[in-house]
């Protein structure tokens, strides 16, 4: 019965076509200086199960060609597991997922009940597991997208940074990036000093204080970077910020596009260093400077 059900499910539910194109590919882009890469970025929405029988819906944003098809000729790609902030819909982070995908990475972003990742922390890894499974299914939209043992980082914004840290620890990801976030429970960090950590936050963030960042940053071991983006606030990281959100945030002092570009320059160096193990990016993280960003190591 189980075999028949499995076959039926895979046959009936396997997406086989291209994804929805979010960014068209362009050979004119090279992915440097905080800009998009040459790949297109396409999205597909899938579902799996966690906690035995609970549905987990998630977006997968992947490098694509002009038709929205996965660039299998360049895969498998390393993976970014993105965890959205508290009470913020995952869709509001699509801009960053699309940027990362254009640079040759697969981005997995799960949905959460009430948009609170803390309530379903293991959705993120369940989604990653499902993408790895899908990559082995012939004809699947994501066939060949990732390797079952490929490199992975967790990235989380705000409350999502806490969940990203849990996933990184529990599932031994290759790195974690906390965007405008800091770990709530630093005791769990004491045993890990083998992977790379990025703290990045806006200098005008009204929800995460510098003292919080310093305390969290100090708790991490291993190679780490704290980056403060000039003029950026907490909700510059999200699209469609609501007035109620901005009312409790700091006031940005630079155009959002400029802040984001400077922030992406750091995030790109981090993804290249950890996921691609690019020596130039490693050097940049360890010793370099970033325009519009104050760094601490």
């Amino acid at each position: 019965m189980l075999f028949a059900l499995t076959a039926l499910t895979l046959t009936a539910c396997t997406p086989t076509g291209p994804g929805a194109i979010a960014v068209a590919p362009s050979a004119a882009r090279d992915g440097t200086n905080g800009g998009d890469g040459p790949f297109g970025a396409a999205r597909t929405t899938l579902a799996t199960q966690a906690r035995v029988n609970e549905r987990v819906s998630f977006d997968v944003t992947f490098p694509c060609d002009a038709t929205g098809a996965l660039r299998r000729d360049r895969g498998p790609f390393a993976t970014v597991v993105f965890v959205s902030g508290g009470l913020v819909a995952p869709e509001r982070y699509r801009w960053i997922a699309e940027h990362i995908a254009t640079r040759g990475f697969v981005v997995v972003s799960s949905a959460y009940v009430l948009n609170l990742a803390l309530f379903q922390a293991d959705n993120a890894h369940a989604a990653l597991r499902a993408v790895r499974d899908a990559a082995t299914v012939p004809g699947h939209t994501l066939e060949g997208a990732v390797s079952p043992t490929g490199r992975v980082i967790a990235v989380g914004h705000s409350l999502g940074g806490i969940v990203a840290t849990y996933q990184w620890l529990d599932h031994r990801y290759n790195g974690v990036a906390l965007i405008a976030s800091y770990p709530a429970d630093t005791s769990r960090l004491l045993g890990d000093d083998t992977t790379r950590t990025l703290f990045i936050s806006g200098a005008e963030d009204g929800l995460v204080t510098r003292a919080d960042l310093d305390r969290g940053f100090g708790a991490f071991r291993g190679r780490k970077l704290l980056a403060l983006v000039d003029g950026m606030n907490h909700f510059d990281w999200t699209d469609q910020a609501q007035p109620s959100e901005l009312a409790r945030d700091g006031t940005p002092t630079r155009p959002q596009a400029a802040s984001r570009r400077d922030a992406l320059r750091v995030i790109d160096a981090f993804t290249d260093a950890v996921l691609n193990q690019d020596p130039a990016a490693v050097t940049q993280l360890d010793t370099g400077t970033f325009s519009g960003v104050t760094v601490q190591r």
């Binding site: 019965m1 189980l2 059900l5 499910t9 799996t48 199960q49 035995v52 499902a130």
Partner: peptide
């Protein structure tokens, strides 16, 4: 007994 369908299995 429970049969899950999205991630086929038995519980």
């Amino acid at each position: 007994w429970l049969v899950t369908t999205l991630l086929p299995g038995v519980a």
